[in-house]
Nucleic acid binder design. Structure first.
Lengths: 214, 214
DNA sequence: TCAAATATCACTGTTTTCAGGGAGTACATA
DNA sequence: TATGTACTCCCTGAAAACAGTGATATTTGA
């Protein structure tokens, strides 16, 4: 099965990036790309959905933004799936999008693999939301105090994730091809940075940060 | 400050229970009680909200149920706070209630202390939702698979909560006036029951069960 | 009422965590 | 160039977690 995607984003660089990522997945073809929502709507009004399967769209765009675009599409062309890929994660926006039946939402800093998984999940008929998105959404819905954005490095997050996934220090060392001592250092730094007492605290932070499926 | 509450529930036993709980909190007075939502609306239509502060209501009631009651009140008498106390936790219902601006939701099996905290939080102007409610809501919103209800005893839950709150075995033993060995047994049982490998897994389950603030 | 579940405590031994250090390299930037 | 930050590795020692096994009393439920 081959799937035809369309992309809407006013940053050419993003479209290029997406294009290169999708090269690795031959089942997906980028049919056309657009610079804003208005172009998409115009295109669909003229050509119809035909064999298009999925729209990948940014949120902030000139003329017609992603929120409005999603809402228009879901009303006029509900068979076309929509995946929002956005820089910022905002609880209110997510809420609006979900109300408007969006099919997925991943942050722009997501890994290539996650993006592909999102696309595959959605064309298969299910919804896909990143853990970070879910987290932001619940926080917003229940007016939770935001996880004070303690900045962790990429490596620290990686280790934290593995720790919270019940791996021992030795196991993490093996997966990351690092010394056991190194992982121990990371563990200590994390405990001190996040001001927790032990593994339980680390795990809770990992969940709060959307590092794993809570 | 004294607060006047009204209660709507078709189970007399529940009203009695609530009454006895509220005896311990002299700042709260139960003004009147009702057997269903229709009675409440009728009463308010005749007498107005006057000095009433909070309605505590069940969900399943004859004639006018809790969902509808909340929606009516929030439209006609928005100054009256509403707290839903229900047997079952259903994501869809929670969603509707939140859309209709409900002020709180706790399950009927909540501890006395939590109920009082909910009431106090709400009359102070904030919202209150139990952790279990939050959990059920996100699960429903994102169509998560439910935490397979592995049944834990009350004691096990208590210990699990303390474990996930970063207490050591010794600390837990001290708080519960039990032997350190006993807590170690519980820990082992929990790890085996929940089929996890260590503290990280236990913590994740504790969160999933709504035992603590995630 | 009798078996099962629950709650409690104990011993032994291994592995892991946690706390406290120190230290070298690479890289960016001020 | 000097400074800072991230990343890596090492050591010691105590405390805690984890694994296995077993025991007793009480409560619950079929």
């Amino acid at each position: 099965m081959n799937y035809n995607l369309i992309i809407a984003d006013d940053h050419k660089m993003f479209i290029d990036g997406l294009q290169s990522i999708l090269k690795e997945a031959p089942e997906f073809t980028i049919a056309t790309t657009f610079k804003n929502g208005a172009q998409v709507v115009k295109y669909l009004d003229i050509n119809g959905v035909k064999d298009l399967h999925l729209l990948i769209t940014d949120l902030t765009m000139p003329e017609v933004d992603g929120i409005e675009l999603n809402s228009i599409i879901k009303e006029k062309y509900p068979s076309l799936k929509t995946l929002v890929v956005s820089m910022h994660i905002d609880g209110g926006m997510i809420d609006t999008l979900i109300r408007n039946n969006v099919d997925g939402y991943v942050p722009k800093n997501a890994e290539k693999d996650e993006l592909l998984e999102a696309i595959r999940t959605i064309v298969a008929g299910e919804k896909y939301f990143s853990n970070e998105v879910k987290r932001a959404y619940t926080d917003a819905m229940f007016e939770n105090k935001k996880a004070e954005e303690i900045s962790l490095t990429q490596r620290e997050k990686e280790v934290l994730k593995l720790i919270a996934e019940e791996n021992t220090t030795q196991e993490i060392a093996d997966t990351l091809f690092l010394s056991k001592h190194t992982i121990e250092s990371y563990r200590k730094n994390l405990i001190s940075k996040l001001q927790v007492k032990n593994l339980a605290g680390l795990t809770k932070h990992a969940i709060k940060m959307g590092l794993l499926d809570s």
